[in-house]
Computed example of a mutant assay.
Amino acid sequence: MKAIGFKTSLPISEAESFIDFETDKPVPAGHDLLVKIAAISVNPVDFKVRQNSAKDKVLDIPKVIGFDAAGVVEAVGDAVTLFKPGDKVFYAGDINKPGSNAEFQLIDERIVGRKPASLSNTEAAVMPLTSLTAWELLFHRIRINEKDKGKSILIIGGAGGVGSIAIQLAKKIAGLTVITTASRPETTAWAKQQGADHVVNHKDLVNEVRKAGFQQVDFILDLVDTNGYWDAMAELIKPQGSIASITGSQTPVALIKLKTKSVAFFWESMFTRSTFQTEDMIEQHHILNKVAELLDNGTLKSTLNETLEGLSAANIRQAHQQLESGKTIGKLAIRF
């Protein structure tokens, strides 16, 4: 089968940063599904893995990455109970296994959902990783529920992949008042299209939020830079509020700044359940099926904003270049 990979971590401008190659089609076992992939998407985690997983070394076998995908189940392992050959699926992958930048992929059924019937392969492929991340942030980390309707949430980075669906979930499912950040006319317009009530400029975050009429907010999602926005988040969060982040930190964060307000802080990694084979790993199957239902009934909409045609090293390079620029709005898909 055809696959796209790399043997060493190179700048994306280098021709060998991704290479086309042929490899054996994998064989499913246990809970594995063998999926024939129809479309994929790219996320910041893709280029971060490429930049860091083969530094200062050359791999004997190219490393295949890629996470978001939509496709059709071709074969199943002997322990599979949730799907059968011919089922259309979508999923966000496992960071420790070969990825979706290939014609076929093995994926554990417990982190796979049924593809939304009303969406094209590209419209579906852009949704899993960001939807799982946003859902887990809102409903599994902060644990927002019915009693929180009408409360306020600040989403830092509303025009990106996670931000785009987080706005929709926070507004349409959780019933929150959504404030998000953007600084360009096109990103502001996109955030409003996703359902944001207020769009503020992140370059002067505290004052911008207050000019929008909020002295403090109940919840904050950081999707951009934990260290860079830490002081602003500590200032803007209400007493007994919650902050959650996906971005990590280059230096330790001063949790003491949250103490007097009794503020809760959460990290979120979409790969936690698959990496550690947690007891509730199948929860991602349930989340994806719920997201598919919400997409099919029109409550949520796909965040697809651009499509490239064809599985090739050139297209994967182009997609990574666009993500690394930091200018991507919504999501980008590659149709095979």
Rank of each mutant, 00 (worst) to 15 (best):
N43R: 00
L34H: 11
F47L: 14
S41D: 05
A39L: 03
I40D: 03
N52E: 05
L34T: 03
H31M: 12
I37Y: 02
L34K: 07
V42R: 03
A38H: 13
F47M: 13
K48L: 10
L33P: 01
D32K: 05
D46R: 05
S41G: 15
A39T: 00
V49Q: 13
P44F: 04
K55R: 15
K48A: 13
S53K: 03
A38Y: 06
A29I: 03
H31A: 11
K55L: 14
S41N: 08
A38Q: 05
V35S: 02
D32G: 10
K55H: 02
R50I: 03
P28S: 12
H31L: 12
S53Q: 06
V27W: 01
L34P: 03
S53N: 05
L33C: 09
P28G: 10
V45I: 15
S53H: 03
V45A: 11
R50Y: 06
D46P: 02
G30A: 14
A38E: 02
K55T: 13
Q51W: 04
D32S: 07
A38K: 14
I40F: 10
D32F: 08
S41W: 02
A39P: 01
K36A: 12
S53M: 08
S53F: 03
G30V: 13
R50P: 04
V49W: 02
V35T: 01
F47T: 14
V49K: 13
K55Q: 15
L33W: 00
A29Q: 14
L34Y: 05
S41V: 00
A29E: 13
A29G: 06
V45M: 02
A29N: 14
V42C: 10
D32V: 08
D32T: 10
I40M: 11
K36W: 05
V49Y: 07
L33Q: 01
L33K: 02
K55G: 07
S41E: 02
V45H: 09
L33S: 01
I40P: 07
V27C: 07
D46I: 10
D56F: 01
N43K: 03
I40K: 10
D56V: 05
H31Q: 12
P28L: 12
I40C: 10
H31F: 13
D46H: 04
K55I: 12
S41H: 05
Q51R: 12
A39W: 04
H31C: 09
Q51Y: 10
Q51N: 13
V42E: 05
P44R: 06
A54D: 03
L33D: 08
V27G: 00
D56G: 00
I37G: 09
V42A: 11
I37E: 07
P28I: 12
V27H: 10
Q51K: 13
S41I: 00
G30Q: 14
R50Q: 14
A39R: 07
V27A: 10
V42K: 00
N52L: 06
V42M: 08
V42T: 13
V27R: 13
I37W: 06
D32N: 15
A38D: 03
K48E: 13
